[in-house]
Simulated scan of single mutants.
Amino acid sequence: MKIDLHMHSTASDGSLTPGELVERAHNLHVEVISITDHDSVAGIAEARQRAAKLTGGVVPQIVTGIELSSRWQGHEIHVLGWCFDLDNKALTELIAAQQRARQERAEQMIDKLSKQQIDEACLQPVRARQDNVDEVITRKHLADALVTGGYVATVDEAFKRYLGKGNCAYVAPQWCSLEDAVGAIQAAGGVTSLAHPLAYQLSSKWLKRLLAAYKDVGGEALEVASGQQAPQQRLQLAQLANDYSLMSSVGSDFHGPGRWRELGRNLSLPDGCRPVWQHWDLSTLVRDQRH
């Protein structure tokens, strides 16, 4: 079964709408997907509506999902969550607080960019997102605006010159704690996974400290397989998942069409892993409409 549990839509920093993501998954024969936007569940309803209109082949089932930003020991750590109640009070309140923090941070970064003589017209698309409650703001949106305005050539350059830690427009995020992120997802009946553990660029010692802390607050799974990953990295993460008695998850972290990442591509788990979906009833999650 083709499963992808980590992707982003225009509700956060993806380039495709939730409906377009569903269509792409359908065309690529991905059977179970989760749209895990940053601190937002705004895209799930549209995704399900689009899936309900698809015919022919395997229609992808939409698993509720989110990627919560959290803080731990001065590091920004992302926690994926699935199969939760969208109306749970604890989770909806945390999401609202996270989105307020994003709005405040974006405003502060815009002010800093304005002091760097960045033209207001360049920043207007980001300001427009502030008025839409269904669209969160990320640094990627500011980076895109700087590229469009001609101030930098690439998103990477925008981070290196303006938006990255220690640069002139950087503002430290005020995210929830790792414990709060895990707790809110579980309070809503969901299951958690630590997203892209090697992306935090922690030493081996600090990565193990993170996994121990994550396990201590009730974390259940580790993202072991991603599309853009060396085989040895996948084996390393599979071993860490087993060492810390964590289940394993898979996800492309797809943000839009490009050369390196694709929905559902190269996401098989190594032998010995316990899939996070091992107790999900996939026979009811996948609706095969082939006749």
Rank of each mutant, 00 (worst) to 15 (best):
D4S: 08
M7F: 01
L16M: 15
T17A: 07
H26F: 15
I33R: 05
S34R: 09
T36Q: 12
S40A: 02
V41C: 13
A42S: 14
G43W: 06
A47W: 00
R50V: 15
T55N: 15
V58A: 08
V59R: 13
Q61P: 02
L68H: 05
L68N: 02
W72I: 07
W72Q: 09
C83P: 00
E93Y: 07
I95D: 00
A96S: 09
Q98R: 11
R100N: 02
E104K: 12
I110S: 10
K112S: 04
C122N: 03
V126G: 05
A128V: 03
Q130V: 00
N132R: 13
I137V: 15
R139H: 11
V147H: 12
V152N: 08
V155N: 10
E157S: 06
R161I: 02
L163S: 06
G166I: 10
G166V: 09
C168G: 01
A169W: 14
A169H: 08
Q174Y: 05
W175Q: 02
L178Q: 05
Q186L: 05
A187P: 11
A188T: 08
G189M: 11
G189D: 05
S193H: 13
L202D: 07
S204I: 05
L207C: 06
L211F: 12
A213V: 04
Y214P: 06
K215P: 00
D216V: 01
G218F: 08
G219R: 11
G219S: 02
E223F: 14
V224F: 10
Q233C: 02
Q233I: 00
A241K: 07
M247W: 06
S249R: 13
D253T: 09
G256W: 13
G256H: 12
P257H: 04
G258Q: 07
L263P: 09
D271T: 07
G272E: 03
G272T: 01
G272C: 02
R274C: 00
P275K: 09
W277T: 09
Q278V: 01
L282E: 10
R287Q: 15
R287D: 11
R290M: 06
H291P: 15
